[in-house]
């Protein structure tokens, strides 16, 4: 029987949730507000929250100085490409771990996750040299592969969790009806796991979009995504906070909008199996 929750308690928790939400969102809000200030207002103390002279000058400067759409397209290609490639590898891998587990499956999963514990800079030189030797420096192909490999453990883990929720009997029935392994995965498993796959895909796109170590170290001009675009506006000697904020806003806006539109799927996927 569900426990009755008093209105006062409900209000209190709702207020707390809003407060936490605002605290988490505040840095983004502040970045957006700063992007509409002049450089002098951006450093004013005490800072003004809304009562300043709004300007679009920073956006104009950023658009004039940088080829935003080139950076944007590189981000799209790298994020979507690495996610698609990752799913292609992860779906069969997660299937085998969920439905035909071996003695060492759990160990294998833990080992895969342990690769995320390695500081990326530890493998910078080997990956840089491999990319150089294959002529892949400053190429989107190299970043698609590298980001796919980096996020693969997370994708496999998430899909494994979702697949575990699907009753094995359904797949067994398909097998008895003569479905091949390929058909079983494509026509039976995948449609049933669409919410899980969709949320995994969305999360992976967000992770790849925001990745700033490899995207900065393996690119120069042709493959540089929005992370490099932001980095070009930061400076330890000179105040460029307003322009930096404008560049940051332009870089995060697409992924923020995507997140808003898909938040239902994202939350559903992330909490899938959390409550039984």
């Amino acid at each position: 029987m569900a426990r009755a929750v008093s209105t006062k308690r409900k209000l209190w928790f709702t207020g707390l949730a809003w407060l936490i939400g605002l605290v988490i969102f505040f840095p983004i809000l502040w970045t957006v507000l700063t992007s509409f200030k002049t450089e002098a207002e951006a450093i004013a103390s005490p800072p003004s929250f809304l009562g300043f002279e709004w300007t679009l000058e920073n956006y104009a400067t950023v658009m004039e100085r940088s080829n935003y759409f080139r950076f944007f397209m590189n981000s799209v290609i790298i994020a979507v490409g690495s996610t698609a490639l990752g799913l292609l590898v992860a779906v069969p891998a997660a299937w085998s771990m969920a439905f035909v587990p071996g003695k060492r499956t759990k160990d294998l999963l833990m080992w895969m996750l342990s690769t995320k514990m390695l500081p990326p800079v530890g493998v910078l030189i080997p990956i840089y040299l491999i990319s150089r030797n294959f002529g892949l420096l400053d190429s989107r192909a190299a970043l698609v592969v590298v980001l796919m490999l980096i996020n693969l453990p997370i994708i496999i883990w998430m899909l494994y969790t979702y697949f575990k929720e699907i009753p094995g009997e359904i797949l067994e029935a398909a097998r008895m009806d003569g479905a091949s392994l390929r058909s079983e995965i494509i026509y039976v498993l995948t449609p049933m796991a669409v919410p899980g796959i969709a949320s995994t895909m969305l999360l992976n796109i967000i992770l790849a979009w925001n990745e700033a170590f490899w995207t900065l170290n393996l690119t120069t001009v042709n493959a540089a995504p929005l992370t490099a675009f932001i980095a070009s506006y930061s400076s330890p000697e000179g105040l460029f906070y307003a322009k930096l904020s404008a560049a940051s806003t332009m870089a995060i806006a697409p992924i923020l909008i995507m997140g808003w539109f898909s938040q239902k799927q994202l939350v559903r996927g992330l909490t899938f199996g959390a409550v039984k």
Binding site: I125, Y128, L129, R132, L137, L216, A231, S232, S234
Partner: peptide, 22 residues
């Protein structure tokens, strides 16, 4: 290629030490 000073230093050092030619 415009970068923040510390990122630039890391990038060009890696590139020159490995003869990346970027």
């Amino acid at each position: 290629v415009t970068l923040e000073e510390n990122i630039l230093r890391q990038r060009v050092t890696t590139d020159i030490a490995t003869k990346g030619g970027q």
